[in-house]
Simulated assay, not measured.
Amino acid sequence: MKVSIIGATGYSGCELIRYLRYHPEVELTSIHSSSTKDEAFSAFYPHAKQLCTLPLETIDPEKIMTVSDLVFFATPSGIAKELAASFVRAGFPAIDLSGDFRLKTQGAYERWYGHRGAPYELVQCFDYGLAEFRQHKQSKWVANPGCYATAAELSLAPLLKEQLIELDSIIIDAKSGFSGAGKNLTQATHFTEAHDNMTLYKMNQHQHIPEIIQQLKKWAPELEAIQFSTSLIPVTRGIFATTYVKAKQPISDEELIAVYRNCYDDNPFVRVQAVGVYPTLKQVVGSNYCDIGLAYNPATNMITIVTVIDNLGKGAAGQAIQNLNLLAGFPEVYGLDQLPLYP
């Protein structure tokens, strides 16, 4: 299978290239940038010298559809919605890593992202790509989930599906490394602001909130709202999400683990930890894994869920490759069954 990447010079695009290099059934045939052309990829990323020799090209949908079988959009939100229509009209498969096609309610994108969204009919063409729970695995067009959303949804799915928690008790405290902010520099991402610091941002306004609720309501239609906060921590990669929920009935740690393993045992990229073991960022960095640890506190009747993913892996490029595998009928682990980067 031949693929192209639009937005190859961003962090997610760079990560797509790294994963695709190890995919036994996929050939990367072209890479594209809206701001650069006719330069080698290694001019931006010297670590790829001799490993990715493709030149960066301008974005030409007709040419992409001639040389490839599928296109990835690894662009910031607001770009794919302008480019995707020509691919959809031609019936050409596309996987979008931005937020342009995730929110299915009219007006939601405009409210949470702050600018005009894609036409409603185009948004409805895209299947929401939470890989472990895809309903339409052969959909030609996939809206890859956000990084925070992936961690939150995988954290809560087993409890919601089994109706084990009070729906008005969900509190998610999520922390991300700075690569999640992309390459554009802001005051918050200056070294002097980020080093030895932790910053909470977008309180009650993060664009992943409606995405998370949209997915959680598929498992619990009565759910109305969640409490969700996001912070930046001084690491390069990774999301560390701690979720607190009130149990409907007392439950042991062993029973909790059993619920999660029953849900995820057939999913190769979700690893449920043993009783009393809680995951760290280091054990998933550079990978498509989602690791989950659990605990129940009988004194408060609260369940704590600790979830870690790599925001560029399972939270972006890794899950996009996983969705490619589902679409193409490849084994789900192709291109992704490699050890995380440790230490």
Rank of each mutant, 00 (worst) to 15 (best):
L256K: 03
L327S: 11
Q227Y: 10
S176C: 10
A48P: 11
A8I: 05
V26E: 01
E193C: 02
P343F: 06
S176E: 03
A274Q: 11
P331D: 14
G99V: 13
L56S: 06
G117V: 07
N288P: 12
S139K: 03
L122T: 12
D253L: 14
K246C: 11
E153T: 14
G293E: 01
P250Q: 11
Y11Q: 04
T300Y: 07
Y148S: 09
P93F: 04
D265S: 11
Q273G: 03
V245S: 11
P268Q: 13
P279E: 06
A90M: 15
L232H: 01
Q227V: 09
A80Y: 00
N197K: 12
S12A: 15
A258Q: 11
K248Q: 13
S12M: 08
S12P: 07
Q215E: 15
C14S: 14
T199Q: 00
Q124I: 05
R111W: 09
F178Q: 00
F330Y: 13
D291A: 03
I305K: 02
G180Q: 00
F178E: 02
I209V: 10
F330C: 10
A108S: 15
Y109L: 13
Q319Y: 12
G286D: 13
G177K: 02
E255D: 15
L167N: 05
P343R: 12
A295F: 08
